[in-house]
Structure formats: C-alpha cells, structure tokens
Design a protein around this nucleic acid. Sequence first.
DNA 1: TATTGTTATACTCTATAACTATA
DNA 2: TATAGTTATAGAGTATAACAATA
Lengths: 141, 141
Amino acid sequence: MTHIQSNDPLAELPGYVLRRAANAMMGELGARLAAIDLKISDASVLLLIAGRSDMTSSEIGKVLDIQRANMVPLLNRLEAAGLIARQPLDRKSQAIVLTPAGQTRLGEVQAITHAFEADLLARIPDADRPHFMPALKALIG
Amino acid sequence: MTHIQSNDPLAELPGYVLRRAANAMMGELGARLAAIDLKISDASVLLLIAGRSDMTSSEIGKVLDIQRANMVPLLNRLEAAGLIARQPLDRKSQAIVLTPAGQTRLGEVQAITHAFEADLLARIPDADRPHFMPALKALIG
DNA sequence: TATTGTTATACTCTATAACTATA
DNA sequence: TATAGTTATAGAGTATAACAATA
C-alpha cells in the first residue's frame, strides 16, 4: 500500500509525488493482471502486437523501452505459455505473433486494461482530468 | 532515454503514460543526484530527517515506503559516507540524524531537488500545470 | 558494416521470513 | 505481546558486453 503520510515533507515535491502515483497505479495494475497470470510487460507486448504479424523482438523492445537482451526471457515466457509464436521473416529476423490462445488472453488483457484505465481516470477530480494526459506527455521525450 | 514512439498504440493509456513519465523523470533526477554520489532514496532520507533528531529507521521506512529490512543497507551506506549517525533513543531504538557533513550534503540535495522540480514543472504547459499535483495526489492513498 | 537474436552476467530494488533484544 | 533492528535470501527489473549468423 502506497500512501503518502501527513508528516511527509516530500509530499509537495512533484517528482516525488509522480513516482509515488506511478508506483501505486502499477501495483494496482500488476495485481489485476496477476489474476490472468501476466506481468505488466507481458500484457504490454500482447497489446502491442495485436492484429499485426510484422513486429520483431527488437522492434517491440524499442517501442516498449525494453533492452533487446531482456526481451528474450520475456518472449520465452509468453511462448512457453502458448500465447505467442515466433514466425521467420527471413533467415535472421522473426515476427512475434499471437497464437489463438494469445488472442483469447489478449481479450482478457483488454478488458482488464480498459477497466483499470477507467478506474484510474475516475479517481482524478473532474476539473483536473482533462489536463492529466497533456501534462504527462509533456514530461516524456 | 524514454521516448514514446508515434506508432505506440499504448501511448493513449493513462497508466502506461504515467509509468513512462515517472521513469523519465526519475532517470533525470537520478542522473543529477549521481553528481553528488547519492541515490534518490539516499536523498529522500536526507530531506526527510532534515532539522530533526527523533526519527528512527522504522519510521523513515514507513514514511518513504521502504521496508524495514531494506533500510539497513541504505543507512549503512549513508553512515559509511559520514552523512548520518545513529543516536540511541533508548536501549532498543535509535534516531537517525545528520552529521555536519550530512548537513552540507543536504544543502546540495536541496539545490538539486529545487532545480529539478522547477524544471519538471516548467515542461508542463501553463494551462495544465495547476492540475498536475491535484491529479497525482488523487491517485495516491 | 550494421543488425538480429541470443547468452551470460551483474547490479539495483524490492519482498519475505526469521532471529534477538527490548519496550 | 508488540516492536526495533538486523541478517539472509530470493525475486523482479534492468544494464552491459560479447558472440554467431545474417542483412
């Protein structure tokens, strides 16, 4: 449970509060995805390759900000769970594609993700909500 | 470098963008604090115990959301660097206090933190800025 | 020459269980 | 009986270097 205390002098520092909010929300999302035996990074991959059959491991890593080397155990895990397959594109590259079981699991991921994002936004006061995404996007890139 | 790509279908998910923004900002803060040989958690402790001599390791952990057990190597590191000292409160508890060197380092932490927080806020468009902290606080606790 | 997939490795952060000494 | 401090350990997540095979 992440809960800023009343006597925390860091509670007015935007960077500190940003980290706390992200930790709280990712903890919540992680708990919801654990119900279908996925980690957040697993779910991100499934969402990313949905409906396509042209993304390689390296490309997925670039988009999701995951190192090439760290993609290997992640994809091995998804493959062992029968959710993705490796399809050769040429003799060097291979596309990562959803299996039928992966398609089914993706549906569950989408349901959980949609509910999670809606619950997250619902916690933000009406007046502040429209400013949330623009503010965060301004901090990236 | 954290930089959401244009072809990333996750770029409109608030939870995902929140995590990316927090990672980007913490990477930036970590880099600035590395210049004075501190980690973010180190700096948080120094800021928290500034001006007091009554906080125990357990209390610091509760406020900063760090497990009791994980406070030990953190405080050992700060103690080895000569920045904090352990002062017995009774035969069981001990207060964590800044040494003179810790006071000096705290000043550097405050300067870095102040500049960082100002730079962070400056990146957010004027119209969105007043809504940033209220939105984040609504997500915590 | 650059890139893909991979292995191996290491480092940080975090989580849990257990022990002791004391409140 | 509960709490403070500690030890040990294990699991994530992340980072780098290096290699073979192929573009």
